[in-house]
């Protein structure tokens, strides 16, 4: 009986470990959606209101939090780089950082944080149901580690590093990894200009 239980446990763990190692080898994918995903008008209104520019802009959106020490700064730096790369190709592009951690990311903190990456990066801050709805629109999920009643300051947040390129009509056209694929997207700005005319 015990041997059987151990065997089952062993088998499960081998499978679990196999999957973990397999997933570690999965590479990021850039997807140009053949069937663009239309966003709700409310979502586009939020994105456009974050900027003072015209309404015929493309939008580039990333999610993160300002206490993130490594992934999010890199993601924001790439966002800023892509906004400049688009401008060089006469593509009108706004970059927006959306915080998944509004409890620690105040408007003031977000303003200073995004400005440190470039004056043309805007931010959005939602709370509660509004944040959950906005995240769900982009399929963003978050996991908070060690955040509890006694710990409201020193915790980590697990979230995806996807970036979303949205056309002026409000459709998600490209999904990519903000860390791995930024250079590929900059190249796309140079070489696939027909995509950005539509």
């Amino acid at each position: 009986m015990i041997q059987s239980v151990l065997q089952r446990k062993y088998s499960s763990t081998v499978v679990a470990l196999t999957l973990l190692f397999t997933q570690a080898s999965i590479e990021a994918a850039t997807v140009i959606l053949p069937r663009p995903v239309p966003l709700q008008a409310e979502t586009m209104t939020h994105l456009r209101q974050a900027h003072t520019s015209e309404h015929n802009q493309w939008q580039l959106v990333v999610f993160g939090f300002t206490h993130c020490k490594d992934i999010c700064p890199m993601s924001l730096a790439n966002l800023a780089m892509l906004v400049k790369a688009a401008a060089n190709e006469q593509i009108k592009l706004d970059g927006t950082f959306v915080t998944v951690d509004p409890d620690r990311d105040s408007e003031e903190i977000l303003s200073g944080y995004t400005k440190s990456f470039g004056a043309d990066i805007a931010y959005l801050r939602f709370e509660g149901e509004d944040l959950e709805r906005f995240k769900a629109t982009f399929g963003v999920e978050t996991v908070f580690y060690t955040k509890n009643a006694g710990n409201q300051q020193n915790y980590q947040v697990d979230h995806s590093t996807s970036a979303f390129l949205i056309d002026p009509s409000g459709k998600i056209r490209v999904i990519f990894d903000a860390l791995e694929d930024a250079a590929r997207i900059a190249k796309m700005f140079r070489e696939k200009k027909e995509l950005f005319k539509s």
Binding site: I26, A28, A29, F138, G139, V140, H159, S160, T161, I175
Partner: peptide, 17 residues
């Protein structure tokens, strides 16, 4: 249950924080 956009989001950014 997951939405299709969540699946795509996860595939596009396999890294974790």
């Amino acid at each position: 249950r997951f939405s299709a956009i969540t699946l795509l989001n996860k595939i596009c950014s396999p890294k974790k924080r």
